[in-house]
Simulated scan of single mutants.
Amino acid sequence: MHYQEYKSILSPKNGMNIYRGCSHGCIYCDSRSSCYNMKHDFCDIEIKRNAPQMLEETLKRKRKKCMVATGAMSDPYIHVEEELLYTRKCLEIIDKYGFGLSILTKSNRILRDLDLLKSINKKSKCVVQMTLTTSDENLCSTIEPNVSTTKERFETLKIMSENGIPTVVWLSPFLPFINDSEENFQRLLDYCIEAKVYGIMCFGIGLTLREGNREYFYEKLDECFPYMKQKYIKTFGNSYECHSDNHSKLMKILYYECKKHSILVGVDNVFSYLNSYEDKNSNDQISLF
Rank of each mutant, 00 (worst) to 15 (best):
M1K: 05
Q4I: 00
K13A: 13
G15S: 05
C22W: 15
S23P: 05
G25L: 02
C26M: 08
I27E: 06
Y28V: 07
D30N: 11
S31Q: 12
S31Y: 04
S31H: 00
N37I: 03
M38D: 00
M38K: 01
H40V: 12
D41G: 02
D41F: 02
I45T: 00
Q53N: 13
Q53A: 14
M54L: 15
M54C: 10
M54H: 05
E56N: 05
E56Q: 14
E56P: 10
E57G: 04
K62H: 11
A69S: 15
G71E: 00
G71C: 01
M73C: 01
S74F: 05
P76M: 02
I78S: 00
V80W: 00
L85M: 12
Y86Q: 06
R88W: 03
K89V: 09
C90Q: 02
C90Y: 03
E92P: 07
E92Y: 08
I93M: 07
I93P: 06
K96S: 09
K96V: 07
N108C: 14
N108Y: 15
D115V: 05
L117G: 11
L117M: 14
L132K: 04
L139C: 00
T142Y: 07
S148Q: 02
T149C: 07
K151D: 13
R153E: 10
E155S: 11
L157E: 04
E162R: 09
G164H: 11
P166W: 13
T167G: 05
L171F: 15
L175W: 06
P176V: 04
F185D: 08
F185T: 04
Q186F: 06
R187G: 02
D190M: 09
C192P: 03
A195F: 12
G199D: 03
M201L: 15
R210S: 14
K220V: 06
D222C: 00
K229R: 15
K234I: 06
F236H: 08
E241G: 07
H243Q: 09
S248T: 01
S248M: 11
Y255L: 11
L264A: 14
V267F: 12
V267M: 10
N269M: 05
N269F: 09
N281E: 15
